[in-house]
Nucleic acid binder design. Sequence first.
DNA 1: ATGGTCGGCAACCGA
Length: 256
Amino acid sequence: MKVASFNVNSIRARLPIVIDWLQKESPDILCVQETKVVDAEFPHAAFEKINYYSAFRGEKSYNGVAILSKSSMEDIRIGFDDDESEGSRIITAKINKIRIVNTYIPQGVHPLLRQFREKLAWIDRLYGYFKLYYQPDKPILWLGDFNIAPESKDVYNPEKLLGSIGFHPDEHAALQRFKEWGFTDVFRLHQPGPEQYTFWDYRVKNAIERKIGWRVDHIWATRPLAKKSVKAWIDISPRLAEKPSDHTIIVAEFKM
DNA sequence: ATGGTCGGCAACCGA
C-alpha cells in the first residue's frame, strides 16, 4: 500500500500536476489540502477518469481537503463529530479497513495572535476526537499539512526559529500528546537525516538550493500500521514543475 | 535579510 499527502495550494491550479503524479506513481491513496474550491466545482470527474474515487469538502478561496483513493471509501466523515464547520480542514474515510484521517491544521499566523491560540485549540480538539472515536491498537493513518515542524532537524535554522509559528514549544507539546497516545512519525522512521523538507517559502529566493525549508507535511500511523511501513520519501517534483507548488509530496509504503 | 511570491479574486487575505 502506497499513500501520500500533498498541499496543492489550489486543486484547480495544480490539477495537471496531481493527475500526472497519480498516473506516474499510482498511489493507493493521496490526501490533498488547500483545494480552495467549493464542492460543486471540485474536479472529481478528472479523477474518476483515471480510476480514482474522491471525497472532498471545500469552501471559496480558503482551505479545503480531499481524499483520492483507488479503492472505494466507507464511512466518510467531514469535520469533527456532527460539526461540519471544520470540514474544510478535516476529512476522514475508511479504506480497506484502515481509517484515513486527512487534516489541514490552521497555520496560526504568529504566536502572539489569537489565531495561534486557535491553532492550539484546534489541535486539542483533534486530540479529543482521536481519543473519543479511535483506538491506537487499530490501523489509523493520519496525513496532512500539520503546519508544524516537530524537531530541530525539521527546520533550516532551529536556533533562530524556535518560538516562531510552526516551530514553537507549545506546538511541539501539542504534537507530543499524539505520539504518547500511539502515533508514529512514519517518515522519520525511515528517514532519520536532516534537511528533509516538504515546504519552501515562495518568497525566499533560491530556497531549495539554500536549503531554507521546513518539514511540516506528515504521515503518521498507529503502531499496528507503522510496523508494516517499509519506506518513506519526499517527492519534490511539484516544486520543480512549470507551475511550482510551495509544498512537495510526502509518500510512504506499507507491506500489507 | 524584517522583504520577498503565490492563488483566489477583485482589495487585499492567507500562507
